[in-house]
Simulated assay, not measured.
Amino acid sequence: MPYLHQIDPIALDLGTWNLPLLGSVHPQVHWYGVMYLLGFLVAWWLGRRRVRAGRLPGVDEQGFGDLMFYGMLGVVLGGRLGYILFYDFPAFTAAPLSIFKVWEGGMSFHGGLLGVLVAVAWWARKHRLHFFDVVDFVAPLVPAGLGFGRLGNWIGGELWGKPTQGTAFDGWGVVFPRALPQPFASMDAATLKAQFDAGLLDAFARHPSQLYQASLEGVAMFAALVWYSRRPRPRYAVSGLFALLYGSFRFLVEFVREPDAQLGYLAFGWVTMGQVLSTPLILLGLFWLWKSRTSPTLMPNPSPAPSGHPLPPGERGKHDA
């Protein structure tokens, strides 16, 4: 049985305000922004627990706070730049200032990932820690943000899946108003609901690919990485599992997700940009897992240094082969 998506993407509407200098403004809080905040809060909570357990020897909660700040900048800046470069470069060349129009949407996970890695590299160098020891520490913190982000996509009714009619999934799915053709697309909510109740929209049901991704990239990856990293693992292992799981999950979901309209399929009538960008992650994940077999293990030291500064190199815990 299909479901009609009619969720209000606005979590809080503060009305219209007349402010000096700014004039009339209408501030709103969107659920997508709330989801980003929840993702950061879960990462903060889990990261603090891991810091207190000494999972990043020589770093206390203040140092971790710096890492979170750099990571948030990496997510936002990298995500926006990645979307422009990977998915909408022609629009950028036509209007370069569009890169600053973040309120219009357009964030790329792969760009955000690169942004986070740059931020981690900067922070690790500053604190004299091995880059992959920090990446291994950060990896379990990321899936919560991915899951909440996909829930934000779901609430906003964007990034929907392919039609289910005429497939093995015929008879169910979600009708997304923004994906409907005319004249349905211009109908108000009440009229659209009446059309749906009459069964006139069943043919437009689609896969709720946002929920598939929230379940796989969010819930499944979070559980797997937290469980796997519950005890010390060799360097590269946790990062490798993260890359392998995300790359595989994203590659698979792309088969039932509608490709970006401005790109379509890149090859063979089924290859999407998401699959192209996820393939290197799968290969890197396998390589890092293989490399971890002969790599040292960073042992916990539950006595972090004060004031957010790392301990001297000889006091940071040992790497066991």
Rank of each mutant, 00 (worst) to 15 (best):
M1G: 06
P9E: 11
G15E: 02
H26M: 00
P27A: 07
G39C: 15
R48Y: 11
L56R: 11
G58Y: 14
E61G: 09
Q62P: 01
G63R: 10
F64N: 01
G65T: 13
G65A: 15
D66N: 08
L67M: 11
G74A: 03
L77H: 07
G78W: 06
R80Q: 09
F89V: 13
A91H: 13
T93A: 02
S98Q: 11
W103F: 02
E104Y: 14
S108P: 13
S108D: 08
H110A: 03
G111A: 07
L114R: 09
V118F: 02
V120M: 04
A121C: 09
W122I: 05
K126N: 11
H127V: 10
R128Y: 13
L129A: 12
H130T: 07
V134N: 03
V135W: 01
A139M: 13
P140W: 05
P143N: 08
A144R: 12
G149N: 12
I155M: 01
L159N: 09
L159D: 01
F169S: 09
V174P: 00
V174N: 02
F176C: 11
A179W: 07
P183F: 03
Q195R: 07
Q195A: 14
Q195Y: 04
L201E: 07
L201W: 08
A203C: 04
A205D: 04
P208Q: 05
S215T: 15
L216M: 10
G218L: 14
A220G: 12
A223W: 09
R235V: 02
S239M: 04
G240H: 00
A243T: 05
Y246M: 12
G247N: 01
S248Y: 01
L252R: 04
V253R: 08
E254S: 01
R257C: 03
L263C: 13
Y265R: 11
G269M: 14
Q275W: 12
Q275P: 13
V276M: 14
L277I: 08
T279G: 09
I282R: 13
F287C: 05
L289R: 07
S292N: 03
S292C: 04
R293E: 03
S295P: 02
S295Y: 03
T297I: 04
L298Y: 08
M299I: 14
P304G: 10
S307M: 03
G308F: 06
G308K: 09
K318R: 14
H319K: 01
A321H: 00
